[in-house]
Amino acid sequence: MSATKTTAAAIGVHGLHKRFGGLVALDGIELEARAAEVLGIIGVNGAGKTTLMNCICGIYRADRGSVSIGGRDMTGLTPHEIAHAGVGRTFQIPRVFRKMSLIDNLLVPVLDRNQTDRALIERAEAMLEQMRLIELRHNFAEELSGGQQKLLEMARMLMPEPKVVMLDEPFAGVHPTLCRFMIEQIEAIAAGGKTVLLISHDLTSIYRLSHRVAALNQGRVIAEGSVDEIRGNPAVVEAYLGA
């Protein structure tokens, strides 16, 4: 994907520290994602990728440092306040509302919207159709396969039309055919002008989708730049291969 011309930082992470007891999960992370940019985050297991995402979402409170979305400081806000600021996300292991129908799952992020139920349901149905889940709309989410749950999460994330979306391992454990479909969806999201933070171990997909990539290791950003720069970066190669 070619680099886009952007100006304002859609996501700003400055000096972010997070410890879990004696374990340093994030060690002064500095990162910026520009508006309408796809920023890929790579790193080995335990590098701090998901912790970073959880700190941005407000699930974890950082020990030090700040997070801003669209220039607005989000530090100390609750997850639902951050969601209202226009941040949506998916999870490594899908966290759908298991005993709710697919339609109801999609309505959850827009419950406070000043729109009629009918309008919201129609939008939810259209989203499900786009994700090829429309026939299952009355089923409970727990009745879906793992891959379908990932698609449902993606649709749920998009329902409130967030400005920033964060995808945590969207391709993990997904069938190749479904994986291709998800890549198309992410490309469509990016084409729609949203800022995307994409965490994945699937480097091929990351390199295909990202405008820029940041590599994390032991809670630090060890490299940041274009796909080509990251691909040939010796620090990244060493972190991945232990060479």
């Binding site: 699930i59 509302f97 709710m100 309505l107 959850v108 419950l111």
Partner: peptide, 24 residues
């Protein structure tokens, strides 16, 4: 109601509901 949907979402996964904008 919307309150009922929010309650059920919180029941199923409070943290995820919080991140979806529900005031848990």
């Amino acid at each position: 109601s919307r309150l009922g949907k929010a309650l059920r979402a919180v029941r199923d996964d409070a943290e995820a509901a919080d991140m979806m904008g529900v005031n848990v």
